[in-house]
Design a protein around this nucleic acid. Sequence first.
DNA 1: ATATATTTGACGTTAATTGTCAAGTGTAAT
DNA 2: ATTACACTTGACAATTAACGTCAAATATAT
Lengths: 105, 105
Amino acid sequence: MKENKTIGEILRENRAKKGLLLRHVSAKLDIDTAILSKIERSERKATKEQILKLAEIFDLDKDDLLVLYLSEKILYEIKDEELGQKALKVAEQKMKYISKNKSGN
Amino acid sequence: MKENKTIGEILRENRAKKGLLLRHVSAKLDIDTAILSKIERSERKATKEQILKLAEIFDLDKDDLLVLYLSEKILYEIKDEELGQKALKVAEQKMKYISKNKSGN
DNA sequence: ATATATTTGACGTTAATTGTCAAGTGTAAT
DNA sequence: ATTACACTTGACAATTAACGTCAAATATAT
């Protein structure tokens, strides 16, 4: 039973839970409501900074939200690629290799 | 015993193996030698089209090279992120979920 | 020293991202 | 049915990043 909501869906749910309007939240982000609307409907991507602010606004765990955000960014890169799955696995391998060989490890 | 060459290193090795100069290969790609030089030293990313041409030029398996290319693109997205590993895993989960729910599956 | 191959960095151009704005749609209450 | 409000949509502008050229600098070999 895996959850599989988009970050946009999560943002919208949390905004509703707090009883906030697009207007309120977008003001805090200092952007037009139009953009926030699009972010919530996955029509646009948020910036990292916006994600961090949103985590604050909704009292969500920043790391959790960031992980979700980054995973969507990754998927965006390979969404139209046949070889996406394989590329992901190779990326993981490389990542492990890199962190193994980090100084101070 | 994992190989861990960059795509740039692979390209340079293969160019050497064929005894070709930057000039020769870059001409086929229709770009300046400067760019190819940078690609080989991982200072620039190639485009997908360039990767496909390079696979042809060096008689390499296109899928293999593309997977490598995509994996580097993915890593590029998260290279400075603490949460990169986690994001990759989540991306893989999502990816599986997506392909499960594809039509004609 | 010349010649050739590669590298470097300053600089355009193009394309993608991020945003605004104004008009449009949906919904609920008067 | 018109007013009011929340949200959505699409055309457009501004900013940033990607992609390229070019000419000068550096290396390497003859």
